[in-house]
Design a protein around this nucleic acid. Structure first.
Lengths: 201, 201
DNA sequence: GACTTTTCTAGTCATTCGGATAGAAATCAA
DNA sequence: TTGATTTCTATCCGAATGACTAGAAAAGTC
């Protein structure tokens, strides 16, 4: 009934992810999007409603996948697993292949600020989800007696800030070891919350 | 001997700060810079070497001032003062008038990434200076017996991440109270490092 | 094979961007 | 007052951008 598209939705979005992460929304031209994704500007316009619509679709796909596959599991993670999760964010495997980290979210915040309602709503949901999961993990750790009696609401917020801050470092890093040092420091903070964590923070 | 400029360097840079913070480097056109700073594109070109040169001058002025007037004092701050410093970052007075916070640095990172040597060198120096100051404060707090024996190197890095992360929240905030809650949580983390800090983390 | 629908190709369009320039206007020393 | 120097005003420029469009090309239905 109709001609087939050269590039299917999923692979196009996957390619767009890298492009938007590397160059930002404004820095990625529609002609570059054509090249990298295989989509045509025509399809960009008719199927996605233009560049911005396509970006929002990409952001959605990204956030959904990160939430589903990359976020810490609130039902099984203990403090050690949470610490390891932060370490792995800056792991050598991850940094070159960024597609599963929170970087696109962070980039979008810095580029759109509070101006764009659509983007903002997505980021808010995303950060809220992360915070809720982390808080649940902390609450379970307290209930299990694994953790000192800290304020889980406040420390969950601190970990959101640390997630964002670490992504800034990853983005700005001059060498990979810097990001890894920061990730390890965050992990040390979390492990320091354990009841018998020894002298370390 | 020569005609006077309509706008002097300092007020132009001050106006440019707000513009670059609000819109980013790419988002601020030379014509907007003309309007907001009073400079002409001619002067932008002849005196600053174009938009990028002017931006670097602005960034320099900003980082220098932040370091001189806004950074925590490594010789006098104790843990409570450091905690209060983070709280004040998201204070109601500060958020509307952004000029003294670290936001331009954070924006620059997200916009230029690792691409621009000039920008990167400045950010690295800036973050390094902040980290060194914080570490000195932590070391003094340990030496004075005010603080539990934590790893000052790692926790200084954590506080750098928190500074960056808090600025992301400030930039993305839907309402001011969110940023303030995050700032208060960071302060709670720091106060929890005190030796007799009670049960709170 | 004819028809319908969708995508592709190739090109155009107005706009905006950073930068450049020529001549007028200001400023001050001599 | 003259002259030298610098900035301002008012354009102009080429390049790039997002969007749009007309006709060709596929793909499936009948």
């Amino acid at each position: 009934m109709a001609r087939k598209r050269k590039a299917d939705h999923d692979t196009a979005v996957a390619a767009a992810l890298e492009l938007f992460w590397a160059q930002g929304y404004g820095g990625a031209s529609t002609r570059e999007i054509e090249e990298k994704t295989g989509l045509t500007r025509f399809t960009l316009q008719t199927a996605y409603g233009g560049k911005e619509g396509f970006f929002l679709d990409t952001l959605d796909a990204y956030l959904d996948r990160a939430e589903a596959h990359s976020f810490p599991d609130p039902e099984t993670f203990d403090l050690d697993a949470l610490a390891a999760w932060f370490e792995q964010l800056a792991g050598s495997k991850r940094i070159p292949a960024i597609d599963q980290t929170g970087c696109l979210a962070f980039n979008s915040v810095s580029e759109f600020g509070r101006d764009n309602r659509e983007v903002n709503a997505r980021i808010e949901r995303y950060l809220g989800s992360f915070e809720a999961r982390v808080r649940r993990i902390l609450q379970r750790a307290v209930a299990d007696g694994q953790m000192r009696d800290i304020n889980t609401e406040q420390m969950a917020r601190v970990l959101v800030d640390l997630l964002l801050g670490l992504h800034v470092v990853i983005k700005a890093r001059s060498d990979d070891s810097m990001a890894q040092k920061h990730a390890k420091s965050i992990a040390a903070l979390i492990r320091g919350w354990k009841k018998n964590g020894g002298a370390r923070s």
